[in-house]
Computed example of a mutant assay.
Amino acid sequence: METPLSTSGNLPPKPGTRPPLQLSGLDFKLLRVFMAVVEAGGFSAAQNELNVGLAAISKQISDLEIRIGMRLCTRGREGFGLTEEGKLVYQASIELFASVDSFRDKLSSAQNELIGDLSVGVIDNTVSDINSPLIAALGRLHSESPKIRLRLHASQLDEVERGVVEGRLVAGIVPVYQRREEFDYFPLYEEKAYAYCAVGHPLFNTGDITPEVLRQYEVVNHRYAIHRDKANFVTYDSQSASASQVEAVAILILTGRFLGFLPEHYATPWVREGRLRALCPDQVYLSTAFNLILRHNAPRSPMVKAFAAALGVDLKAAT
C-alpha cells in the first residue's frame, strides 16, 4: 500500500504546522513597514516616516500577521505594544536586513561602488559644535559615494547606544562618560561645557564670584551627563531639578532660578544676547570626549570603512 512517505520520499507535515515561509519581495516590504512602526513607537507616529496613511499601515501590518501566522502587536485602545512573537520577529528582521546589507556591500565592493543605507546615530543638539567632523564627513561621503543613502538619527545617548547594540544603527557619535564592553571606541573631538546662570538669577550681575559660591545655589542635574568632575563645583541632592536633554537643561537655566552646565557652542547665542552668563569659566568647566562607536567585533562593511575614513578615523586604532 502506498503512503505519503513512499510517494514523496519525505515525511508528511505534522497536523497544525505551517510550511516554512518563503520570503518574497512583498514580505521584505511588509517587514520594513513593521520595523518602521516599532521604531517610531506606533502606527500614528510611523506615518511621516513611511509617508502613507494610518489605514494603509494598519492593513500592511495585518497582511504581515496573516502571512506569518502570528499576532505581532497590540493597537487601538490598548495602545501600541509588541507581543512576544512581535519582539522575536522584530529582532529577526534586524538580522535579516543586516545580512541583506552585507550581501549588497560585498557585491558593490566587487563593483567598486558603494550602495545601500548607512544608519548613524548622533546626540541631539550637537549641530552647532564647530569641532565636530560629522557635517564635513557626511558631505564628503555623499560626494564620493552618491548611491549611499544616509540615514541620520538624532536622539539621547541611551537610544543611540541601544540602536548600535541591536543593529538598527551601524555607528554612533556619542559623548563618552563610561565605556561599555559592547562597543569599540574611536576618538573624534572634545566638547567643553561651562556653568551658566541666566538673567534674573542672583549671580547674573554679581561681580567677583569664586567656585565655592556656586555650591550655595540650586543646579540642574543633566541626568545622562555623568561627569565625576561636576561634584568639584556644584552640589546635587534628591530635590534638584533634572533634565535628560541639553535643550531641557537650557530651558530650566533660562528661568533664572537654576545654575547648570551647557556645552559652550550651544550656549553661545544666549551669551551674545546677554541672557546667559558663564560662571568662573577659567576654573569651572567640563571636557567631554566624543567618540565614534561601533559594535564590538562586528564586521566592518565597506560603507562603514568609508564613513570612518571620511571622519578621519583609523579603524585599527580602537581604544
Rank of each mutant, 00 (worst) to 15 (best):
L286W: 08
V304N: 03
S93L: 07
R272E: 15
E113G: 01
G81C: 10
L88K: 12
F233D: 04
V122L: 14
Y266H: 13
I123T: 11
A298L: 02
L276N: 05
N48C: 05
N51A: 14
N112V: 02
N232G: 09
G121M: 08
I293P: 00
A289Y: 02
R272F: 03
G76N: 12
L294E: 06
L31I: 08
D27C: 08
L31A: 04
I68A: 07
V213M: 15
S62E: 15
T17L: 07
D282W: 04
V52W: 03
K147Y: 11
N297M: 09
H222T: 01
A317Y: 08
A308S: 02
P302F: 09
M70I: 01
V170C: 14
L152Q: 05
S109C: 10
G167R: 04
A243W: 06
Q239G: 06
V213A: 14
A289F: 01
E181H: 13
G312P: 01
I173P: 00
M303P: 02
L286G: 02
L262Q: 05
F258R: 01
G256V: 04
D237A: 11
P146G: 07
R77L: 14
L114T: 05
P175N: 03
L88D: 09
S24K: 15
R168E: 11
T126R: 08
E182T: 06
E181F: 11
G139T: 06
I68K: 04
K305M: 10
R67H: 14
E95T: 10
V33C: 11
G274C: 04
Q239E: 15
I209C: 01
T235Q: 13
A198H: 08
V199M: 11
V219P: 00
L157E: 13
L88Y: 08
H201Q: 07
K192Q: 13
N291D: 15
G79V: 06
L203D: 04
G200V: 01
E190V: 08
R151Q: 13
N221G: 00
N51Q: 13
A171N: 06
A231R: 12
M303A: 14
V122F: 12
E273S: 12
K316G: 14
G200F: 11
E85Y: 06
D184S: 15
L188N: 01
A98I: 03
C73P: 01
K29E: 15
K14Q: 09
E247Y: 09
R228L: 12
G79S: 08
L262E: 06
G121H: 08
T126A: 05
G200N: 05
F103H: 11
K87T: 05
D208T: 13
G81H: 13
V165D: 07
S6C: 05
A98P: 00
L203C: 03
D124Q: 09
